[in-house]
């Protein structure tokens, strides 16, 4: 055993410090260095969630603010409102692009979902207009954010609906 121990110590001493890979690893590294670092599509909810959280904190803290500060926040709220609206529209557009690949509207269950989405859109539009007039209304904010969230959920549900192949026509 002592002999084996000496042999192991010798093997450790003799172990080369460098090894040459069998393949050239640089081309893949170079390709990855050139690749743009873009945000993943499934991370789009993050800025939306962050803004919503900030907004909620702002609304909860509103009674503690002085009237002067509240007046200044009026503009900030309107700006936030516009940002959230834009982000929501972007998210809906991206989901709509996915829908062209899934073609869920031809599902027999698609019509009620589409009706629901349309109603939600109309409601959200009205709430948005009212919010622009009264951006400090906490309940309107909550309702507006809920309609947006529900719209996204419904679109995603629609994309998971079963599609009847005979009626499907061209499905990509």
């Amino acid at each position: 055993m002592a002999n084996n121990s000496n042999q192991l110590a010798q093997l450790i001493d003799d172990a080369p410090k460098e090894m040459t890979p069998a393949e050239d690893l640089w081309p893949e590294i170079a390709r990855r260095l050139d690749a743009p670092t873009t945000a993943q599509p499934n991370q789009l909810w993050r800025p939306f969630a962050l803004v919503s959280l900030l907004l909620l904190a702002l609304l909860i803290g509103k009674p503690f603010l002085t009237p002067e500060i509240a007046a200044q926040n009026h503009d900030a709220l309107l700006a936030t409102l516009a940002v959230i609206n834009t982000q929501h529209q972007q998210q809906v557009t991206e989901l709509a692009q996915q829908a062209t690949h899934v073609d869920w509207q031809i599902s027999p269950y698609g019509q009620p979902v589409e009706n629901g989405i349309k109603q939600l859109k109309d409601a959200a539009k009205q709430i948005y207009q009212n919010l622009q007039l009264n951006p400090t209304d906490k309940q309107l904010w909550q309702l507006w954010l809920w309609t947006q969230q529900r719209e996204i959920e419904l679109i995603k549900q629609g994309q998971n609906l079963p599609v009847i192949q005979q009626k499907a026509g061209e499905i990509i």
């Binding site: 460098e18 890979p21 069998a22 690893l25």
Partner: peptide, 22 residues
Amino acid sequence: QRVYALCFRLAGQKELAEEATQ
């Protein structure tokens, strides 16, 4: 070569060592 040697010995296999080096 030094990075690859370290990766190979830790990973114990060529493919994983190549990926770790990259």
